[in-house]
Simulated assay, not measured.
Amino acid sequence: RDKFLPFDRPEMPTTISLWASALAAVDRSRPPSCGADLPQLYVMPEPALLASPDDPARRRMLYHHYSLLRDALMFRLGYGDGDEPHALLTTQQWRDIVQGKITKQGKAGSRAQARSASLEELLRPAFSACSMDDLTGFPVSPDSVPPLDVNRTKELLWELAEINFRYEFLALDARASGLNRPDECRTCFASPRLIGMDFNESQRGFAGRETDERLPHFLCMAGFMRDWSVPCERPKEIDNAKGRTQWSADSIHGLESAVTKYYTASFYELFGRAAVVPMRL
């Protein structure tokens, strides 16, 4: 699966073409400046990780596991110090979690057993805080998996995309600018929350349907980008936006294109992978 290209399933939220085009346009003809061997780490599982299996029954299993674990995983983000999550997890760790491999299991001495034991130790405090003391039911029996609720699944996947996007923007700004300003960065979003967003935000902020609605959010992000030092050229539209008060539809589109392309290219250069970008319900 190419993470720089849109992934389509009936239960996936709507792709925002501007962000999808920017992600697809990232120049991967050479390794990123951070190196090609960095582990791919995420604050939450990316939506396509759950939606990627071709077998519908397997996808339902992953969605069901995630829905059962969601509160504990959110708690894990919310009770840390400041704005930093306790630990970013690899794609493989998130795959194990949504497969229900959250207690020590597997062949003695195997890598799979070591991974599951490590995950159990890592997640146990959040499980205990959410009164999930008995984990013997994981992985869930296939007979216990409910039918797919497409609308609810879209909401959960949108939420995953949005949480990843918000945390990633804060991390990208910190690394690209060398500044510690997470609270200021939050003002770019439809709300300052990093978790627990209302689902109506899926059509606000960067996901707004009208250019006038999106403009303040792109201007906000462009303002932070002017402090970035990254090994890719910053589009002139970002610098020219400073202090500008008159905007036509074409000039707004030009700014949006510049910001999204600079964002996705910068993320690739500094983190070595595709950014998780906003989606829309």
Rank of each mutant, 00 (worst) to 15 (best):
M12E: 12
Q93E: 15
L18R: 07
C34E: 15
Y66C: 00
G82P: 06
V26L: 03
Y66S: 00
E46C: 02
T90L: 13
P39H: 04
D55Y: 02
K107G: 07
Y42I: 06
E84T: 03
H64M: 00
K104I: 00
M74F: 05
L23M: 12
A117K: 03
R9G: 08
P10W: 02
Y79H: 01
Q40T: 15
A114I: 05
P31Q: 09
S17P: 13
D83F: 14
H65P: 04
L38W: 09
L119W: 04
T103G: 05
S21K: 05
S29N: 14
S110M: 03
D37Y: 13
V98E: 13
S118M: 03
E84V: 01
G109C: 05
T90M: 14
A108N: 13
R28S: 08
F7V: 13
G109A: 04
E120C: 00
S110V: 03
D81W: 06
Q113I: 02
A57I: 01
T103V: 02
P31V: 08
A25I: 01
W19I: 07
A51C: 05
T15W: 14
M61P: 09
A51G: 10
L62W: 05
Q113H: 06
W94Y: 14
A22E: 13
G106T: 02
F7K: 12
A72N: 07
A25C: 04
P13D: 11
A114G: 12
E120G: 01
L68T: 00
S116G: 03
P39G: 11
A72Q: 05
A108I: 12
V98L: 11
L68N: 10
A72W: 09
Q93N: 09
R70M: 04
R111K: 13
R111M: 07
Q99F: 03
T103C: 04
E84I: 01
E120N: 00
K104Q: 09
R9Y: 02
V98P: 11
R9V: 04
E84N: 03
A48F: 02
S67D: 10
T103D: 11
Q40K: 08
P53G: 09
G78T: 03
Q99H: 06
D96P: 07
F75N: 01
L62V: 08
G106Y: 04
Q113V: 02
Q40F: 12
Y42E: 15
D83R: 08
D83I: 12
L50R: 13
S17K: 10
T14Q: 15
L62A: 05
S110G: 03
A117N: 08
L77W: 04
A25E: 02
A22N: 12
P31G: 09
S110D: 01
G80R: 03
H86F: 13
S29H: 10
I97L: 10
P53K: 02
M74E: 09
S21P: 05
T15G: 08
R28V: 13
I16Y: 11
D96C: 07
S67K: 06
L68K: 09
R58Q: 11
R59C: 06
A24P: 05
M44P: 06
R28N: 09
D81M: 01
G35F: 15
L89S: 04
D54A: 12
D81F: 02
V98S: 10
S118P: 02
Q113L: 06
